[in-house]
Design a protein around this nucleic acid. Sequence first.
DNA 1: CTAATCAGAATTTGATCATATTTTTGTGGC
DNA 2: GCCACAAAAATATGATCAAATTCTGATTAG
Lengths: 238, 238
Amino acid sequence: MEGTGKLGQGSEHNDENAPRVPVHQQVYAQLREAVLFGELAPGQAVTIQGLIERTGAGMTPIREAIRRLTSEGALEFRGNRRVVVPMLTADAIDDLIFLRETVESRLAAHAAEKITAPDITALEKIDAQVDEAITRGDVSAYLRQNFAFHAKLYAVANAPILMDVANSVWLRFGPSMRVVCGRMGTQNLPDNHKTALDALKAKDAEATANAMREDVVQGMEQIREALLDGTAFSDTID
Amino acid sequence: MEGTGKLGQGSEHNDENAPRVPVHQQVYAQLREAVLFGELAPGQAVTIQGLIERTGAGMTPIREAIRRLTSEGALEFRGNRRVVVPMLTADAIDDLIFLRETVESRLAAHAAEKITAPDITALEKIDAQVDEAITRGDVSAYLRQNFAFHAKLYAVANAPILMDVANSVWLRFGPSMRVVCGRMGTQNLPDNHKTALDALKAKDAEATANAMREDVVQGMEQIREALLDGTAFSDTID
DNA sequence: CTAATCAGAATTTGATCATATTTTTGTGGC
DNA sequence: GCCACAAAAATATGATCAAATTCTGATTAG
């Protein structure tokens, strides 16, 4: 295995005309994925030095990436100068549920008005992979494909500001989501995507919004229950 | 006047036990204010070099500040390496109105449940300064005090995630708000703070939420009208 | 003969890194 | 148990390299 997780587009066959991606963006993207899909546990510390070793990048681009993620709620300034993956409180999860409900259903409604046939095909393809991940019991794949479905819907909606809010919300519950799924497996996970797809095909904005709201609330309630139980998060130290 | 706008807490009498504020936070705070209160016009370019001269800081902390503000929607990546103060589109303003309505009324409801007597006193004090700014016709003071009122309410609500969203929304419409107020003066500006204060004193969450919703919608509609007219923003080149 | 366009040079700006300075933390001796 | 010292980590600066925009001037079309 490649192992180190270093950056850089490898020595092989550097795409010529590709507009090269700045290091700070690569670090940002990598760290963002790590948070979004729970590769970093809630409460875990994120240090500049650690990222220098992990990525091989210099310190300036790493600082920029950390600041960005902090502003987006993916990371949290903890007092002195320690940065950690935030842990969800009960109040926080309520606010996240509220935000996902309102923002995501509005995005869904927008999407229903603008969606095209190729978009629907793409969504169906992603949803098939969600199903496959569930039957396979592959938590990591489920998280990624489920997010891909929602992200595609955001892209169709074409509302950058709402999308920013939605993405920030995902970053905030991502780590906890992973912990919960890790415990419960993929059996009880929500998948109202079929209903949403039907509504999208009919270009029915309200029905689409309702389907997504249902999907969102079901998923988020599982996190809330697990969090209130206290069992799911007992291993993450403060 | 102090003139240069340089950072640093001056040579005089450096507060000993004050935990000194990192440069990147100072730059962030300064730039944030500039956007929030319209000292930078929509469409205006923001360069690293320019900020180095303006603030006297090194380039790393300035980069960090710019990344943060970009993530918060106060600035916008434009193409390859140009960062500008974003200009509002008609679609964007609709989304901002929606977000302010939903998020800010929820914050207001939270605040109504948690507010204490000293908080109310503080809010009344701020609101008095809002009134004074309006009668004086001082646009800049109005913008600052009006924001202070809402910010204080957010602080009372004690819901960090919702507050982040609200702050991001303010940063996005701040520059346009300034342009609109500059044209119209302070006469027709909304001030439903009295109604909100009455509701807060009664700890009536729903009434508080409604009052704030009213205040928000009134203010935002003015921006939308001005933006759709096209007159208010004609001087800002693309 | 004027004006517009394009190529190449020059200047400006951004990206990254290496280094110095300050702060925090951890450890051992008193 | 507390203070001092040492090691580690974060902050901040400036230098260096690369890329892009702007500027200039010449050539050509009208």
